[in-house]
Design a protein around this nucleic acid. Structure first.
Length: 182
DNA sequence: TAAGTGATTAGC
DNA sequence: CTAATCACTTAT
């Protein structure tokens, strides 16, 4: 019995969502119809009162998606080369989301141990920005996976940001080889 | 440790 | 309009 995570999963505090996304299964239906899956093993939380968050200074043309209803995909392009996949959390009109940083592939897909590589492998681009991830009718959704035991979850500081370095809002699965390298 | 790459944003 | 920045990756 496959269960798709519904909106109530995302309609919670962003830190809770970031933590409980570990172990869940990210699914992507490619244009050719094939579905690829991977277990989420690394996440980071970003919220409105956080200087590292795109929503920090209120909605802009790019960040307005973060203020959408929870369970929406926020995908942006950065460094001229890479896309980043986030899932919008909390509540509508509050700008927050979770960055999916790494997955453990459940099929033959390479290079998913980093947010940019993950989007490249899963062919995730800005075309998918703003889609609803609570239904498998769309190109991205998340299925219920196996729960990660509390003792296998590591909480630490986020990677690659200038502000908010001290905030321990990154979560990953201990000893998982697909977690990104610092 | 530095370069590559181009959209986005704040500030004129 | 322009310049600075950037939730990254790869190769030195």
């Amino acid at each position: 019995m496959i269960l798709i995570l519904k909106r109530n999963f995302y309609s919670r505090n962003t830190l809770d969502v970031a933590k409980s996304l570990l172990g869940q299964v990210l699914c992507r239906r490619l244009d050719d119809g094939n579905v690829i899956r991977g277990i989420i093993v690394e996440t980071e939380a970003y919220m409105e009162n956080d200087p590292a968050c795109h929503a920090y200074n209120g909605p802009t043309r790019r960040s307005k998606i973060l203020f959408e209803k929870p369970g929406t995909a926020y995908i942006y392009f950065t460094y001229g080369m890479y896309h980043m996949l986030n899932l919008v959390t909390d509540k509508k009109e509050y700008g927050a989301g979770v960055l999916i940083r790494a997955i453990e592939p459940l099929c033959l897909i390479p290079d998913t141990n980093g947010p940019g590589k993950l989007c490249r492998s899963l062919e995730i681009t800005r075309d998918l920005n703003g889609i609803d991830v609570t239904t498998d009718k769309n190109a991205i959704w998340v299925e219920k996976g196996e729960e990660i035991p509390e003792e296998n979850i590591v909480q630490t500081t986020r990677i690659g940001i200038k502000h908010g370095k001290e905030l321990p809002w990154r979560f990953y699965v201990k000893n998982n080889k697909w977690v990104s390298k610092k």
